[in-house]
Amino acid sequence: MRETCDDQTMEELIGLLQANDERALDKLDSLVREFSTDPRLPFMKASLLVSTGNPIQAHYWFNKALELAPDFAIARFQFGLFQLTSGEPAQALETWGRLDLLPDGHYLRAFVDGLRCLIRDDFNGARRHLTIGMAANDENGPLNNDMALLMRQLDSLEHSSQNLSSPDDTSDEEVSQTSLLLQQLGIYGLPN
């Protein structure tokens, strides 16, 4: 059993997933078994499960990824976001706690601060922190797109009181959650 999946295999897997290839899930499951200590694979599986409507299993695999790599920052951020949108803000805050150890000015810290403001319905604070985070983030474009989308939805909500979670609210510019997470994996590679 090897420890980490090589980059080429990972890229092939990402290609299959992004193409919605039916072999992707089998391939992912096989790699999860083969590289059982590579945290990227359970994170990827969690992302896939969220997008295919199996959030219960997704929760397990998010946890698994963070058990393997507690400092896997993007997985920690996305797991917290998943918990928040699942109506578990206390758990989200707990998950994000470790991200406070990231260096000052790190965009994930700013994004978390923005989301913490949103939990308190502090829309202005949320906008301020999300804007700071987007300015600081020059390595993860998809995440910036997602935060920009969130800000636009906030603006829209403030004006129309429409439900942010409604699927009808999504625009063409939205990056699907799976696509977003997979692209981030491509950017980040292995966590420290």
Partner: peptide
């Protein structure tokens, strides 16, 4: 805060907490 919650994920979280 309520605006961020996705009802389908929230219900799934309830099922998870009940089942697990």
């Amino acid at each position: 805060m309520a605006l961020l919650i996705r009802p389908d994920l929230k219900e799934a979280a309830l099922w998870r907490r009940w089942l697990n």
